[in-house]
Design a protein around this nucleic acid. Structure first.
Lengths: 166, 166
DNA sequence: ACAATCATGTAAGCAGTTACATGATTTT
DNA sequence: AAAATCATGTAACTGCTTACATGATTGT
């Protein structure tokens, strides 16, 4: 019996595992703080998802409270940790292409003449440069380094493409 | 009045524009032939989408036929081409992070000990190597080069991370 | 005290999925 | 003639979105 997590579920479990325990709200904030625009981390997605994970026995809820306000904290069960590791270390899924808004456009750039291609690439490059100077993930060294090296790899890709696309 | 296309719509319009005219089926095949697993190009997605684009005046339908079988061919209207170019050359969206199944996992690899991290990275690397030898997009030079350089950039990224993650 | 924002949700909608149906065409 | 596959859909489902509601807490 295998428990297949969606990528959003996997990422949410990872955020909870990292903290030991967390509320749904903490998870929404973790997503909101990410520079990725792909998941909004909206309450409408996260709260029901956390409940589903608890119903599936991957999370254990416990009533914590600060002051008179009730809140539900969750921590991973053994089964939840096993599911998380299955998801996290899944090489086949990790080696997938995902969705890349730049790659999706690049393959169709032959629809426009060279000057417009050039202008587009420069626009993208300058936006990446702006990102690089922003200093994201000040609180988490691994995330910061993953992101920083990702940006470098992107720049490297664009440099390779420059010679290919004119 | 701006017409904002989803990425799937933009990619579909681009496939049609590239061919001059195309049926919905041709579009599904274009997606199915891509090495990306992100969009299945399922009929359930494509056929209704093409109809929506036609209803919005971005595509013009014309009844072609081979033998006695009726088929609907579509080509871009002027408005459709304008919408496509808006989407295609949108630097802000192109510079987004998209969804990256590897990046999503890498930032959480500190949940597992170094030997497992190493094993995971090797597994991913070998799958990329397998992709590289596969020769995708034999029919479209630009796509092939975009994909080939993307794979190189990924390898470059993993090489940078090797030193950082142990 | 009032306003802002924190925190926990719910409701409706939308864009994709898988699975199925159906008839035309091609292959064996 | 039968089987495979080509081609065009439709139906039910899923998982996300935006937008809203509501009460607690914090700041001025």
């Amino acid at each position: 019996m295998s428990i297949r997590l969606t990528d959003l579920e996997g990422a949410a479990l990872a955020e909870i595992a990292k903290r030991g325990a967390a509320t749904s709200y903490v998870v929404t904030q973790a997503f909101a703080g990410s520079p990725s625009e792909f998941w909004s981390g909206s309450a409408g997605a996260v709260y029901p998802m956390i409940k589903r994970l608890a119903a599936r026995g991957l999370l254990q809820g416990e009533a914590g409270s600060t002051g008179r306000r009730a809140r539900q904290e969750y921590r991973l069960t053994d089964q939840g940790m096993a599911a998380l590791l299955d998801w996290l270390l899944d090489c086949d899924r990790a080696a997938g292409l995902g969705f890349d808004p730049l790659r999706t456009r690049l393959v169709h750039l032959d629809l426009v003449p060279a000057p417009q291609r050039q202008q587009f690439l420069e626009g993208v490059q300058s936006r990446f440069a702006a990102r690089a100077s922003h200093q994201a993930f000040a609180d988490h060294p691994l995330s910061r380094r993953v992101y920083a090296t990702w940006l470098k790899a992107r720049a490297h890709w664009l440099a390779m493409l420059d010679q290919v696309i004119d």
